[in-house]
């Protein structure tokens, strides 16, 4: 039992580190030319998604918060709130989608959680600037969500077996 708990803590810490590193690495990469300005692939969503399927809801949220705190340190308050709101919404989406049988595959889950992530960010932006100019960003953000969601979903599906083999313990919420 004790062993199990240590395993979970280690795993949560590892996933947090993963998320933080991926988020940092991604901020160094230039935006691909075909993507809208400021858009990110959202690689750090992969460890979050993995946590959502293997760990409990509050452990997943812990990772989201930890990642946002790192964003706060490196990129300031606005980015923090955007990251937190986007991360929270997408984590909720993942938790539901990964645990329930919905008929959606990894791509669908990736896309939906990416959309949720964007909605969270847009909501924070709207709160900050209080302008309908935000609406103009919505279509392009949806398209971005499809591309990034497809990528993260696929990467997660491909890496899942290896992660699972590395860390096998009682799955929660099943």
């Amino acid at each position: 039992m004790r062993n199990e708990k240590i395993k979970r803590i280690t795993f949560t810490a590892l996933m947090t580190a993963f998320a933080v590193v991926l988020s940092f690495v991604e901020s160094l990469l230039p935006t691909a030319y075909f993507m809208p300005p400021g858009s990110k692939i959202g690689l750090s969503n992969i460890p979050v998604m993995f946590s959502a399927s293997k760990l409990s809801a509050h452990e997943t949220m812990l990772i989201v918060v930890a990642k946002s705190v790192f964003v706060f340190i490196t990129r300031g308050a606005t980015a923090f709130f955007m990251s937190l709101a986007g991360g929270f919404l997408s984590a909720v989406c993942m938790l539901i989608m990964l645990r329930k049988t919905t008929g959606f595959g990894f791509v669908g889950i990736g896309v939906l959680s990416a959309i949720c992530h964007n909605i969270g960010q847009l909501a924070v932006s709207f709160f900050l600037v209080q302008s309908s100019a935000i609406i103009g960003y919505a279509p392009i953000m949806l398209i971005t969500a499809v591309i990034t969601g497809f990528l993260t979903g696929t990467v997660l599906r491909l890496t899942m077996p290896y992660f699972s083999r590395l860390f096998s313990f009682k799955e929660m919420g099943k």
């Binding site: 008929g103 959606f104 595959g105 990894f106 669908g108 896309v111 599906r157």
Partner: peptide, 11 residues
């Protein structure tokens, strides 16, 4: 879960 399902496609 599968990588991609029909529902994903429709989505």
């Amino acid at each position: 879960k599968k990588l991609i399902t029909k529902k994903d496609f429709v989505l």
